[in-house]
């Protein structure tokens, strides 16, 4: 039984120039204790999706359709007050740039205490103790509780907000690009640390990143997002071994692999679709190396190609790897 089930979620932003279809018919589910990766270019809607789950959208974000079921209860039906209780206690979030995620004029320790006391009625002293414990978990010296965010180094900041996300014992943590702002060595440390904590507490995670390697190392299942939609979703090994969508293949191709034969890195031409003005047919067609007439006319449906392997491509039934790779490598 999945812990979180998102069904056909549609969330658009209304702007002066029209509707921006940031999350357009997205379905995803997570089991307890598992990690699902969400990968895609900037602007494809990953963060919007995350904000949707937590319902922390800006005033111009509107839910058009779909359900977000947390243990069978639809979060979209909750009143704001009930949702406030769900936030952080059931689902918490790790923001991309830790420095910006913390209030610059309040001490870090105090911020964590405030969060804790917003969800549990405990005394200030007890809260402080718990915060000190959590700091220890992420290996931050307890004395730093009194520091301000700008006094932390980048890695320490990140660890602080990881600590913050664990405070109320959530069932799911959404990690939005948790390591993008860090250098590679620190990245590794942080991801390892997070994996350990996850195992220890049985927390599920939605790991959002544009870095395919981070996803590969840490996720059980992967969802590839493009233009506000999920274009492929399968277990990690499957996605890497047998991808069934040209965008996935192009993504994988853009990252070097240490093993395997040396090949040229290829990049995808063009830019992400304008979510205000979408083309008819497949959203990826303008950039797709193997696009054909049908792709431009008819939007592909999201179908289950094999067991638990979904794809949104007209040609998902056959293996496209060689074709796409070839086309990519021979672009002029």
């Amino acid at each position: 039984m999945p812990l979180l089930e998102v069904k056909n979620l549609k969330m658009y932003y209304s702007s002066r120039r029209g509707l921006v279809r940031a999350v357009d018919d997205v379905s995803l589910s997570i089991e307890g204790g598992r990690t699902v990766g969400l990968v895609g270019e900037s602007g494809c809607g990953k963060s919007s999706f995350a904000y949707s789950i937590m319902r922390i959208l800006p005033p111009n974000g509107r839910f058009i359709d779909g359900q977000i079921l947390l243990e069978r209860e639809d979060l979209l039906n909750l009143t704001e007050e009930k949702m406030r209780k769900v936030r952080w206690k059931e689902i918490s979030m790790i923001f991309q740039s830790a420095m910006n995620a913390l209030n610059p004029v309040i001490r870090v320790g105090d911020q964590l205490v405030d969060v804790l006391r917003a969800h549990e009625s405990i005394s200030r002293d007890d809260a402080k103790k718990k915060v000190a414990e959590v700091f220890e978990l992420v290996e931050i010296p307890a004395s730093r509780v009194k520091s301000y965010p700008h006094e932390f180094s980048g890695g320490m900041n990140q660890r602080a907000i990881i600590a913050m996300s664990l405070l109320c014992g959530p069932k799911i943590i959404i990690a939005d690009e948790p390591t993008t702002a860090l250098d590679v060595v620190v990245q590794d440390q942080i991801m390892d640390g997070m994996k350990q904590l996850q195992k220890k507490y049985g927390v599920s995670m939605i790991l959002i990143s544009h870095d395919v390697s981070v996803i590969a190392e840490n996720c059980d299942r992967v969802a590839v997002m493009y233009g506000g939609q999920i274009v492929e979703h399968a277990s990690t090994t499957t996605v890497f071994k047998d991808p069934r969508h040209p965008y996935t293949i192009a993504l994988l191709n853009a990252f070097p692999s240490v093993k395997g034969p040396m090949r040229r890195l290829t990049s995808l031409r063009g830019s992400p679709p304008n979510l205000l003005n979408l083309p008819p047919g497949c959203r990826f067609a303008p950039r797709c190396p193997i696009a054909e007439e049908v792709c431009r006319k008819e939007a592909p449906r999201y179908i289950e190609v094999y067991k638990e392997h979904y794809s949104r491509c007209h040609f998902a039934s056959r293996s496209l790897v060689k074709e796409v790779q070839f086309k990519l490598e021979n672009q002029t």
Binding site: M54, M93, L102, V115, A118, M164
Partner: peptide
């Protein structure tokens, strides 16, 4: 618009608290 305000919302803090403290 800052991230820490969004984070405060995500943390489920009361709106009044967010407004005054953040």
């Amino acid at each position: 618009r800052e991230d820490y305000v969004k984070c405060a919302q995500a943390e489920g803090l009361k709106n009044r608290v967010i407004f005054y403290k953040y």
